[in-house]
Computed example of a mutant assay.
Amino acid sequence: MERTLVLLKPDCVQRRLMGEIISRFEAKGLNIVGMKMMHVTPDLAKQHYAEHVEKPFYPSLESFITSAPIVALAIDGIEVIRVMRDLLGATNGCNAAPGTIRGDFSNSRQMNLVHASDGPEAAARELHLYFGTGDLCDFDHVTEEFMRAADE
């Protein structure tokens, strides 16, 4: 079992696609163990996107991510980091395959609805930025035995 961070970005919230996108995660059998709506502050944006702060596009990225509320999700699942990125599709919605979230709902590189951690180290770092001690709810899902074989 792996855990990852997913952010429903301001365009997702403003376009009222939160429920549609969360339902895709649940239909896939992924487990939401933390969720909160919040505003990303400029300081949090700088921490989250630390590797991009000095790049020329960073000011517009910060302006976008702080422009409206986001929904932060902590999600568990088998190979959840890869599975989530497959569900989302290519970063640029114009290049994302139909059937993926970005392929179905986005036609932009920046306004691509959702952020997902790109690896285990990033997931751990990013989860810590958005969720504190006691914010996550680990529990046994009664549907687990119907989602995959016991030996998977």
Rank of each mutant, 00 (worst) to 15 (best):
M1R: 06
T4V: 13
L5E: 08
L7R: 05
L8H: 03
C12G: 09
R15T: 15
R15W: 11
R16F: 13
G19Q: 00
I21T: 02
R24P: 01
A27G: 09
G29S: 09
N31A: 14
N31D: 15
I32R: 12
I32Q: 09
K36I: 06
H39N: 10
P42Q: 04
P42R: 04
D43V: 04
L44H: 13
A45G: 03
A45I: 04
K46Q: 04
Q47I: 00
Y49G: 07
E51I: 13
V53D: 02
V53K: 02
P56A: 10
P59W: 12
L61M: 11
L61V: 07
E62K: 07
F64Y: 10
F64W: 01
I65H: 07
I65S: 02
T66W: 02
S67T: 03
S67L: 11
A68V: 03
P69E: 07
P69I: 08
I70F: 14
V71G: 00
A72C: 09
A72M: 11
A72Y: 06
I75C: 07
G77F: 03
I78F: 05
I78H: 05
V83D: 08
M84A: 10
R85Y: 11
L87V: 11
L87M: 09
C94V: 06
C94R: 10
N95R: 12
G99K: 04
G99R: 08
T100Q: 03
D104L: 12
N107L: 06
Q110N: 10
N112R: 02
N112W: 15
N112H: 07
V114C: 12
V114P: 04
H115Y: 09
G119D: 08
P120S: 07
P120N: 15
A122C: 04
A123K: 08
A124W: 04
L127I: 11
L127H: 00
H128G: 07
H128N: 06
Y130D: 08
Y130Q: 00
G132D: 04
T133W: 00
D135G: 05
L136V: 09
C137H: 06
F139Y: 15
F139R: 01
F139N: 06
H141A: 13
H141T: 08
H141I: 10
V142Q: 03
T143D: 06
F146N: 12
M147F: 00
M147H: 05
M147A: 05
A149G: 06
A150K: 15
A150P: 05
A150Q: 10
